[in-house]
Structures are given as structure tokens and as C-alpha cells.
């Protein structure tokens, strides 16, 4: 998939972990979305960010992209504070989410070529051909994005996310609303990408099967706080459960009981 990838030192900050989060907090008035979390992502790892709705996953990812400024604490990517210096490193990362689209009336090729120009991909036509072949976009490459099925749109979104061969890939529920076959296929492509490039992946997901398959590590959030941070296997073992889904439910329901106790 990555024939055009050339490896080598390019003078940018390579030392240290790609992502460092320290005491990160985001509050909207009285509502605390993320409450003083800290973690580090090592190069080449896949980390899953889990939690129920409103646990703080999307806010955390958004702070890592520099789209949200934290109330306090630091989100660093490749050594750059994403609040103040995100443009130093944005070309080295990318993200994919079914909740963002690209312009509907433009064809897939037009959309990809625009993003390739924004990222400054050298020889982008070759890169688009390469991605088109590996992600099976050929049949609809010149069709408007708005006329594609959900599965096809996800493949385009993935192609957009991989255009610049990102060293850090942020994925927000990448397989949501896909049928099991297509979702499995997308996971395989992401695994291929990680294997071929050594990229670091942060994955927010509600699909526990996906997390068990892809993630080396799980960070579980509950009401903006980290309540677990370990490998999927260790987590399952520690909770005395058989699957990650059971652990997820335990933590979610424990949170619910805690809410009830607090209210009473």
C-alpha cells in the first residue's frame, strides 16, 4: 500500500513519545468534560480510548487535534503544544471519523486531490492511485462523494486520513454504522497501515470486539477521568470477566450506581 513511502530522518522532532497528555482538563462552565487526565502514547502502538457517551473521548481527541483549547493541562503531539503550536505538527497527523464528511458534490478524486494539496503530498496522483487500489476506490473514484454508500464513504474517509502517511492517526469510531464485513475490512486496512508504517494510533470506539482485536492498550474514561489504563487482557483478567464488553458494562454500571449514591 505504501510504495511511495520513503523512510528517513527529516530533522523534525523524533525523540520521545508522539503523544504526551498531562493533567488535561476541559470544563464548559460547571460541566467538566475531561477532568485532569494524563497519559503517554508510545510510537507504533494502538491505544483505545473507551467510555460511554459523554465520558470525554471526543473532547480528548479534539484537544489532541488542537480543535479545543484545554482549560488547563497540556496536550502535546510530537513535542508541540496543540493549544499554541499545532501548525508545527498537523501535517504529521490525520484523523478519521464517520461524523465528519468531505464536500458531497465533489468527486472522490477531487476531494482527495484537494486534501493532498493541503497536506502538500509530493506526487499526489500516484498516492491517490495507490490508496485507490488498496482501499478499492477505483470503481467510484470519479463519482460524487454524496452519492456513495456508508461503507464507500468510510473508505474515502480512510483514504483522506492516510493521504499524508500520518505518523499519528486519530480515529473516532471508525467503523460506526458499517456492516460487519465492511467493518472487518476497514480494521484489516488499519492494521496493515500500522504494520507498514509504524504509525501510532489512538482509537475511540464503542465496539469492544474491535478494541480487543486492534488495541495494545485500553484507556477507559468515565465522566472525564481515567478509570483504567492497561492492556485489554489485563483489564479483562483484573475484573474477572471474559470479555472487554463485560468490563465496559461493569465500569459503566458502577458509574451509574455511583451517580445514584451521590444523588441520594
Amino acid at each position: 500500500m505504501l510504495d511511495t513511502v520513503k523512510r528517513g530522518v527529516d530533522g523534525e522532532n523524533r525523540a520521545g513519545p508522539p503523544v504526551v497528555v498531562r493533567d488535561l482538563r476541559k470544563a464548559y462552565g460547571d460541566v467538566v468534560a475531561v477532568d485532569g487526565i494524563s497519559f503517554t502514547l508510545e510510537k507504533g502502538t494502538v491505544t483505545a480510548l473507551l467510555g460511554g457517551n459523554g465520558a470525554g473521548k471526543t473532547t480528548t481527541i479534539s484537544m489532541l487535534m488542537g480543535l479545543i483549547i484545554p482549560t488547563s493541562g497540556v496536550a502535546e503531539v510530537f513535542g508541540a503544544d496543540m493549544s499554541t503550536a499545532r501548525h508545527r505538527v498537523l501535517h504529521r497527523m490525520n484523523f478519521e471519523s464517520p461524523y465528519s464528511d468531505v464536500p458531497m458534490r465533489l468527486t472522490v478524486h477531487q476531494n482527495l486531490s484537494i486534501f493532498a494539496r493541503l497536506y502538500g503530498v509530493i506526487g499526489f496522483e500516484a498516492r491517490i492511485r495507490e490508496l485507490s487500489a488498496s482501499l478499492r476506490l477505483d470503481e467510484f473514484l470519479h463519482r460524487p462523494y454524496g452519492k456513495l454508500s456508508a461503507g464507500q464513504k468510510t473508505r474515502v474517509s480512510l483514504a483522506k486520513a492516510l493521504l499524508n502517511v500520518p505518523e499519528l492517526l486519530l480515529l473516532d469510531e471508525p467503523t460506526a454504522s458499517l456492516d460487519p464485513d465492511t467493518a472487518d475490512w476497514v480494521r484489516s486496512r488499519l492494521e496493515d497501515y500500522r504494520r507498514e508504517t509504524g504509525a501510532t494510533i489512538l482509537l475511540a470506539s464503542h465496539n469492544m470486539g474491535e478494541v480487543e482485536r486492534m488495541a495494545d492498550r485500553v484507556i477507559m474514561l468515565d465522566r472525564g477521568r481515567i478509570v483504567a489504563d492497561e492492556t485489554p487482557a489485563t483489564l479483562v483478567q483484573r475484573f474477572g470477566r471474559e470479555t472487554l464488553e463485560e468490563v465496559f458494562l461493569d465500569i459503566a454500571r458502577r458509574g451509574g450506581r455511583h451517580d445514584a449514591e451521590t444523588r441520594s
Binding site: P103, I114, V121
Partner: peptide, 26 residues
Amino acid sequence: MTSRLLEPQTGAAATVRRIHAMVLRH
């Protein structure tokens, strides 16, 4: 790794390239 695949990200040429991309989109 990435920067070997990408044009320089700073300077006038990079700015013109990105503005061109956005104009092309419209």
C-alpha cells in the same frame, strides 16, 4: 518519515499551495 513525502509546510510556496487547494475546491 512523513516530511520526506510532503512538500515543505512553511514559506510562501506552501501558503500559495494551500490557498490554491481551497480555491480549487470551490
